[in-house]
Design a protein around this nucleic acid. Sequence first.
DNA 1: CAAAGAATATGACACAGTGTCAATAAGTTA
DNA 2: TAACTTATTGACACTGTGTCATATTCTTTG
Lengths: 204, 204
Amino acid sequence: MENGKTGDKRHLRSIMTRQKLLEAAKEIFLEEGYQAALISQMIKRANIGYGTAYVHFKGKEDLLIVLMENVMEQFYEIAETFFFPKSKDEAKHIINRQANAFLKMAEAERNMMQVFEQAIGISTIISDKWKAIRMKFIQRISQDVAYAQQNGLARTELNHELVARGWFFTNEMYLWEIVRNEHQSSVEEISQTITSVYVEGLYV
Amino acid sequence: MENGKTGDKRHLRSIMTRQKLLEAAKEIFLEEGYQAALISQMIKRANIGYGTAYVHFKGKEDLLIVLMENVMEQFYEIAETFFFPKSKDEAKHIINRQANAFLKMAEAERNMMQVFEQAIGISTIISDKWKAIRMKFIQRISQDVAYAQQNGLARTELNHELVARGWFFTNEMYLWEIVRNEHQSSVEEISQTITSVYVEGLYV
DNA sequence: CAAAGAATATGACACAGTGTCAATAAGTTA
DNA sequence: TAACTTATTGACACTGTGTCATATTCTTTG
């Protein structure tokens, strides 16, 4: 007996069922997109009874949320970069790296992000999840701008909160462009260009 | 007989029916949002027979598209401002005015824009409509950046297309914030701040 | 101006998908 | 092995959509 609990085949089976469904759901979401994906398809693909799905999840939305959590984590990690530049150039370098990492995520997780984008438009809960990520980034950037202002690196007449939002928004929209595969230029060129305008516009 | 056609009560009635349905649809969309709005509700509100709705429109999506056309027009008008600045300061002034007008639209049409935002996430056709507006703006801005570069007003080492997108994206995201009523600052302060960072970052 | 014809409107119906729940199966405990 | 607990199941009721044969209303024609 490897754990305290006595034999627990039942619980194990339940976990397997849940897992099977999650995997099937991911496949269907990727194949069909959020809107067109049907719970009934997922159930069929997972080879479980119809009602079973509703034992494990409240519905389509609930399933996607679980699937997204993974991707979310990665975003949170990016948001937590250190930022204590000593010069405008150093700042530019750090900022460029972060913007780049952010956009690279879009490429790496493109397929799930496509589903996610659709879901944001439809499901309030999922939209809120994304808003939380956005807020985290904006707060972080806002703090960084304030730091740069306090250290005489950035123009102080600007509202750092507003600047932070504006900067994040540019990044976010490029992220969605990349997700949709609508971007012409390389991620490197994009992050360099937007970083350049931003840093030259904000820093002194 | 005021027009060439002979008596045409039938056609007139048809137009009235269509109109009644459009008005009811607008009400329902505003009350319920795109997703939750039901065709059946609209039909009931318009006091017409169930099947009649499908004579005039293909479905919910089709109804919204017609309702949006009006708002769309206003955006196109904003996109068509003249831009031939002689100095950085003049450029800043024009750009600020345009950003402001753009964001003011969000305030003015907030309710319909909220419905629109949801619909963009769901309906391909509506999403395409918005993309067309975005493209129009980006093309216009792109052209303006190129003009400024050619006249020695803006840094030439930057890809004007990429800069234009970045700048529009900031504007667009603030637009949606305003639509969702999530903005803290006044539209004036927002447009001034983002314009300042943009112009200082791009112009020499 | 009545009958034929054309345009419009109608709602019953078939269909698709969802979520629930009483019944059943499978596993655990004593 | 009987009693109990947990997990699974699919038939069913429900909601909303889009279609289509039929009815209504108006226009034209002889």
